[in-house]
Design a protein around this nucleic acid. Structure first.
Lengths: 220, 220
DNA sequence: CAAATGACGATTGTCGACAATCGATCATCT
DNA sequence: AGATGATCGATTGTCGACAATCGTCATTTG
């Protein structure tokens, strides 16, 4: 995915993704091709292509002959997606654990501190960004293009989930603890432990968000 | 993905996928939207949608403003894809290892025997099918929809790779040995071993096919 | 002669219009 | 009243035509 968005399709993808993170578009809402087309001043063709991409990344749910809807993720699906990300990232980092310099380990620690600060400030946007930077640095040593493709795609889905539900919690000490455990295992240099810790991190986070989802849907 | 293909798009996907397995379309060849459209008697719109899906599954390579080409997988990419599949499948089976009945374990063993037979007969098509059945049964216990989605998509890519290159080898005893190791670890009931064995199976197979690729490209 | 430049052909990118299909509404029948 | 079936509006599915862009190759230029 290029930085420079040449085609309309890429601009539409970025636009809709932004609406998702903003909360302008809520889960379950329908996205009408014609509306989006008119709104952006282009035809339906590039809109459809963009939606196809969002569908493949799990952000949009598609019902044939009916319409496209903002994906309404079930708690179970949330756990599944987080778990899968943990499996992939755990493997990637396990394979490359000895390629991290002292500087990079320090950088990871700093990022965790920043996340903790943003969490206490309830700065959702920066918390998400910093968290993304943390995990990006973790898997940056892997050169498995297939694995990186999947982790990238999952990031989009997980970010929207995180943004949508985590804002109601912000347990900053918990965030710091979870992430420091990863950095700690890296410093220890035990590949088996590293993989295990990363997997646990994601299953725990996924479970937590799933709980927020059910809690949210309950008092409706 | 429904069995009944209602839209043209799904028919196009199936059609092109068939051409890929047949060997009618070879790696690197260009797929011209207009040609396919005329060939199938439909317009370019559904063709483009189908290509988008094949692109997302890694079967077609897309160069903007230039064209769509049958994905020309490098040996490195082959290894990466097989490795990733091993990571996902290994985790899925590790999590569900104690859900296999004695019958199912026997079925797995039978499938291996069949694969061995098809390999000696050099029946590429049935070997691929039976192998697919074997691995489908292995991951069938997992209910992680995200993980299953990725393994499904990877299957398409790996099948084309397998078909394209494995036909020149057919080491039936090796095939049997690799797959029996998986069944054996399952019978042993050691989750850690199971995950390890499945990962090794895929890295070995991927490496082998990558070697065939380089050998093939060398004497050109 | 090498490298930059320009025009050309082929293919994808986008468009607006029409057809097909689905879900909801309402009338009808039992 | 409840179930059933037809009708209608809205949205996606498909189409053919045109525009934009890229790679190629002949041409120019130093």
């Amino acid at each position: 995915m290029p930085i420079i968005k040449k085609t309309y399709k890429d601009q539409v993808v970025a636009y809709v993704y932004q609406l998702l993170l903003d909360g302008t578009l809520n889960a379950g809402e329908q996205i009408k091709e014609s509306h989006l087309a008119e709104e952006m001043g282009i035809s339906r063709a590039p809109i459809r292509e963009a939606l196809k991409e969002l569908i493949m990344n799990g952000l949009v749910e598609y019902r044939p002959q009916v319409g496209n809807f903002i994906a309404n993720m079930s708690p179970k699906q949330t756990i599944d997606s987080y778990t899968t990300r943990g499996v992939l990232e755990g493997f990637a980092v396990m394979q490359t654990y000895n390629q991290f310099s002292a500087e990079e380990l320090k950088k990871l620690g700093n990022l965790v501190s920043q996340m903790e600060a943003y969490a206490t400030q309830k700065n959702n946007r920066m918390l998400t960004n910093t968290g993304g930077e943390f995990h990006d640095l973790l898997i940056s040593k892997s050169n498995n293009v297939q694995l990186l493709e999947y982790t990238d795609r999952l990031s989009l889905k997980l970010h929207t989930l995180f943004n949508r539900h985590w804002g109601r919690l912000y347990n900053s000490s918990e965030i710091a603890r979870r992430h420091m455990a990863i950095v700690g295992s890296l410093k220890q240099g035990d590949p088996v432990l590293i993989e295990q810790v990363i997997r646990e991190h994601y299953t725990e986070t996924g479970t937590k968000i799933a709980e927020l989802q059910t809690a949210n849907s309950d008092h409706h």
